[in-house]
Simulated scan of single mutants.
Amino acid sequence: MNVGAHVSISGSRVSSDTATPEYNDIRNAVDRQLAFGGNCGQIFTTSPQVWQQPEISDEAAQGFRELTAEKLEGPWVIHSAYLVNLCTPKDDLRQKSIDSMQAELDAADKLGIPYVNVHLGAHTGAGVGGGLDNAAEVIDELDVPEDVQILVESDAGSGTKLGGEFDHLAGIIERTDEEIGICIDTAHTLVAGNDLTTPEAVDETIQRFDDVVGLEYLEYIHLNDSKHDIGTHKDEHALIGEGYIGEDGIAAIINHPELRDLPYALETPTEDGKGFEWNIAKVKELREN
């Protein structure tokens, strides 16, 4: 099973097998993933709360690629900055979003990471159609490296944010010329109004996703339980099996024949002494051979 966590790259090199450690060393991600028991996962290349370009030395990038190939099994994904808004009608925010996304795509290419994950963002008055048109124009303006794919993440769907409905995901696929993929966040999917609490509900939701979007576009899953119930549009993740999706729902997701071979990245909280290591172990416990 390809399962891991969203790990930090912060700090100097955790291990001492490099001549020139650097602050926020990308190689830290591999060490931390292994410590948690993961074999794939997700990273930020910079702080997600500010407009900042990734700074990755050639040595660190090469080391990251080598460590990943040697010690991990599944693919990494870069999560774009939270400030990025593909749907915005505002020219200045649009350009900042383009510049940030291009930097992340270039970083993914340098690191040998196949995916860059991004939220559609909020249309802020442009309307659903206008927001999706804006997002498609931004994506089409990017120079996407040959071995990198943009993944649009499903959203909790609050306010004017897009991505909470499967129609939004289908709409961006239809509008862009780029061959994008989809990343489903299980907590977001639940609170956006889709039942994932029982095997029967999971089957129905997956079938509806296939009918509207197409399972061939689904490349990655953010596996999170939710602290809020179906249709609340409240984005707050819970420990695996201890939220509203629950053990039955999580087990149904990770063992579903259409989903079981996909990579899973956890964005679960650290609570009650339970962190990523506990959550990954819980996922493996719920996995059927």
Results as ranks from 00 to 15, higher is better:
163 G>L: 14
155 D>M: 15
193 G>F: 05
190 L>E: 11
165 E>H: 14
199 P>K: 05
152 V>R: 01
161 K>W: 03
152 V>H: 01
184 I>Y: 08
155 D>P: 07
192 A>G: 12
182 I>T: 05
165 E>L: 13
209 F>T: 00
161 K>P: 02
157 G>P: 07
184 I>K: 01
165 E>F: 04
172 I>G: 02
184 I>W: 11
168 H>Q: 10
178 E>W: 07
186 T>F: 09
203 D>L: 06
150 I>R: 00
183 C>T: 15
175 R>F: 02
179 E>W: 03
160 T>L: 08
205 T>S: 08
173 I>P: 01
152 V>T: 08
163 G>W: 13
197 T>W: 07
191 V>H: 07
156 A>L: 07
200 E>M: 06
210 D>E: 14
202 V>I: 07
198 T>L: 11
145 P>I: 00
175 R>I: 07
164 G>I: 11
183 C>I: 12
151 L>H: 03
194 N>W: 14
155 D>G: 04
168 H>K: 08
158 S>T: 12
163 G>A: 11
203 D>R: 13
196 L>A: 04
167 D>T: 15
169 L>M: 14
195 D>S: 09
167 D>H: 09
190 L>G: 08
154 S>W: 12
192 A>M: 14
149 Q>Y: 04
148 V>T: 15
175 R>E: 00
171 G>T: 02
146 E>L: 14
150 I>T: 01
167 D>R: 09
207 Q>I: 06
206 I>H: 01
205 T>G: 10
201 A>W: 05
180 I>E: 00
187 A>F: 08
168 H>A: 11
169 L>G: 03
202 V>Y: 01
148 V>E: 03
164 G>P: 05
156 A>R: 08
184 I>A: 02
145 P>K: 02
151 L>A: 07
188 H>K: 13
179 E>Y: 03
203 D>A: 12
192 A>S: 14
173 I>V: 15
203 D>E: 15
171 G>L: 00
162 L>W: 08
194 N>Y: 15
195 D>G: 05
191 V>E: 10
179 E>K: 12
176 T>G: 05
146 E>D: 15
163 G>C: 13
190 L>R: 09
169 L>T: 04
166 F>W: 13
202 V>F: 05
170 A>W: 05
175 R>P: 01
207 Q>A: 15
205 T>W: 06
147 D>M: 06
161 K>H: 14
190 L>D: 12
162 L>I: 10
208 R>F: 12
145 P>F: 00
208 R>C: 05
162 L>D: 10
209 F>L: 11
162 L>G: 09
161 K>V: 12
197 T>K: 13
185 D>C: 11
152 V>K: 04
166 F>V: 06
160 T>R: 10
148 V>D: 03
147 D>A: 12
185 D>S: 12
192 A>I: 10
202 V>W: 03
200 E>C: 05
185 D>H: 12
179 E>V: 08
150 I>W: 00
177 D>W: 02
209 F>V: 03
202 V>P: 00
145 P>E: 00
181 G>R: 01
150 I>A: 01
194 N>S: 10
205 T>H: 09
209 F>I: 10
148 V>K: 01
166 F>Q: 07
169 L>E: 04
161 K>I: 10
196 L>D: 11
171 G>F: 00
201 A>L: 03
187 A>Q: 08
157 G>H: 07
147 D>S: 14
